[in-house]
Nucleic acid binder design. Structure first.
Lengths: 148, 148
DNA sequence: CATATAAGTTAGATTAATTTAATATATTTA
DNA sequence: TAAATATATTAAATTAATCTAACTTATATG
């Protein structure tokens, strides 16, 4: 019964949470805009999210997260932050790239992997190695990715 | 026209490559076994892989990789190795876990991310930090993941 | 308040991936 | 070589995700 919801559905859930945060509620059109899809796809997603018990949904009424939905989001936010921090500080990617990639990977990496990555961030931080420049210099020194 | 083939299809392609390596050829039944699916699903995948120009496929005849298919596999192997190395040596996961997770992430992480990860492996290696025990000790010292 | 516009939903198709059950093709072996 | 067995494919359903186009419900404003 625990089966994790799909990457796509999780993304819809996040979009709803963000919109609910920013504005009071999440409308179909706004979700569609954020998700880069058509309104009808949103309706379909809402039905499925509702079946999974993640949102309270009734046609033509504003959507709200259930307790389960909020818990889910809370976890995803933690995941997102950990991955982004790693991409940004350790792998030295730029803001925009790190954000995009974290948005996707938070749904795809195993929780254990993310927990460990987070621990690794902490480890480096505790040693003053997080966000140090040695690796950036190393990258600069490398020849451009050769396209064998 | 460059659109990357789906994670699932890429996995079938890999299974075929491995079987072709081990035995001379890849039969539908063997692929199904390796992919944990039914034989009919394999047939379906073979048709799609063929449409993508990754394999040479004709019903009832043994499958072979095309040039494009081989190139694809070569890249995936590199990706797999880089991710596994990171999980194994840097994040200190055990063999089996690293293998499983790499198998999935190689299809999901952006190429740029994997390249950078690989570079990070090299960086650590060049400094004698790859596979050092400091992080393992750090992990041991941590309290068990608290389930908030 | 009546209607034009915006927002939301439904219906009907499509594509990828999968399954079961039935059928077709190869291969073995008696 | 003919029958039994194993292998492979097809047909028909299912589920998730998507789209277009048509329809419905709300909202706004003249």
């Amino acid at each position: 019964m625990k089966k994790r919801v799909s990457l796509v559905l999780e993304s819809y859930l996040e979009a709803i949470a963000v919109l609910q945060e920013e504005h009071g509620a999440a409308g179909t059109a706004m979700i569609a805009d954020k998700m880069q899809c058509k309104r009808s796809s949103v309706t379909s997603a809402l039905r499925r999210l509702s079946e999974h018990g993640l949102i309270n949904y009734q046609p033509y009424k504003p959507v709200t997260l259930t307790e389960k939905g909020r818990a889910n989001i809370k976890k995803l936010d933690k995941y997102h932050a950990a991955i982004k921090k790693f991409l940004l500080n350790v792998l030295a990617f730029e803001e925009e790239y790190a954000e995009q990639e974290a948005c996707k990977l938070e749904h795809q990496m195993l929780p254990e992997t993310i927990e460990r990555l987070s621990l690794y961030n902490d480890f480096l931080e505790s040693r003053g190695f997080l966000e140090n420049d040695a690796f950036k210099l190393y990258i600069k020194g490398e020849p451009e990715e050769k396209k064998s």
